Amino acid sequence: MEYLQIAFRTIFYYFFINITFRIMGKREIGELGLFDLVVFLMIAELVAISIEELEEPIMYIILPIIILIFLQIILAKLSLRFKKIRFFFDGRASLFISKGKINLKELKRQKYNLDDLMMQARQKEVRTLSEIDYAVLETDGTLSVFKKSDQNKKVYPLAIIQDGEIMLDNLKGAKISKLWVLKELEKRNICLKDVFYGYLEKNNLKIIKRKDLL
């Protein structure tokens, strides 16, 4: 009888967790933010407890899982609306190399050493750091590398404007000021709040307006 209970709970949780993850949204494991990872680990631990402790009613496990799902969905929606919440849970991308120069301060802030940087660079088929124009540590922990030989090397890899807000932390690497960005918008009679995304290409500010979105 005990084996049947284990088999039943295993099959039940298999389908239940699949449905749960679909509700939470499709993301690859490598793309999970810190909060998503914590939720997934807690769900896995709760399921393991339920299979091991057969005397515990299934509802004792399903209830906290449902609470975690709703919490994750609510925070995901808030993160889409409020950048501060998104940055708090997911963090920000870090510019490790800008125009071929290594940012030691940013490496130390992210607790990265040269060996870590070289290892991830080699995984991108980069032999030496001198080949790199820009290197960005993404919020999921992966390193994005842009080589000097890339055709699009004139495009700065971090956002200058995002959701109607100037990304001040990204201006330093691009060697531009907030005043310069505001003047560029003023020349084009564009209001900052109307800008969905702005980036730098060949020292020119490129704009995607909210009204241009589908």
Rank of each mutant, 00 (worst) to 15 (best):
Glu2Val: 11
Glu2Gly: 05
Leu4Tyr: 11
Gln5Arg: 08
Ile6Tyr: 13
Phe8Cys: 03
Thr10Ile: 13
Thr10Ser: 15
Ile11His: 04
Tyr13Asn: 09
Tyr14Leu: 15
Phe15Tyr: 10
Phe16Gln: 03
Asn18Gln: 05
Phe21Trp: 11
Phe21Gln: 10
Arg22Ser: 08
Ile23Tyr: 04
Gly25Trp: 04
Arg27Ala: 09
Glu31Val: 01
Leu32His: 05
Phe35Pro: 01
Leu37Pro: 00
Leu37Asn: 13
Leu37Thr: 15
Leu37Trp: 01
Phe40Cys: 12
Ile43Phe: 10
Ala44Ile: 09
Leu46Arg: 05
Glu56Ala: 07
Met59Ser: 09
Ile61Met: 10
Pro64Val: 02
Ile65Trp: 10
Ile74Gly: 01
Ile74His: 02
Ala76Arg: 03
Ala76Ser: 15
Ser79Pro: 01
Ser79His: 01
Arg81Met: 12
Asp90Trp: 04
Gly91Phe: 12
Ala93Asn: 07
Leu95Ile: 12
Phe96Cys: 15
Phe96Gly: 08
Lys99Val: 02
Lys101Glu: 15
Ile102Asn: 05
Lys111Thr: 01
Tyr112His: 04
Tyr112Val: 03
Leu114Tyr: 07
Asp115Phe: 00
Glu125Asn: 15
Thr128Trp: 00
Leu129Ala: 09
Glu131Phe: 00
Val136Ser: 04
Glu138Cys: 05
Asp140Glu: 06
Thr142Phe: 07
Thr142Gly: 00
Thr142His: 13
Leu143Asp: 01
Leu143Ile: 09
Ser144Ile: 02
Phe146Trp: 03
Lys147Cys: 02
Lys148Tyr: 07
Lys153His: 06
Lys154Phe: 02
Ile161Asn: 10
Ile161Pro: 12
Asp169Phe: 13
Leu171Tyr: 05
Lys172Pro: 02
Gly173Pro: 03
Leu179Glu: 13
Val181Trp: 03
Glu186Arg: 11
Leu192Ile: 05
Glu201Gln: 15
Asn204Leu: 12
Leu205Cys: 03
Asp212Gln: 12
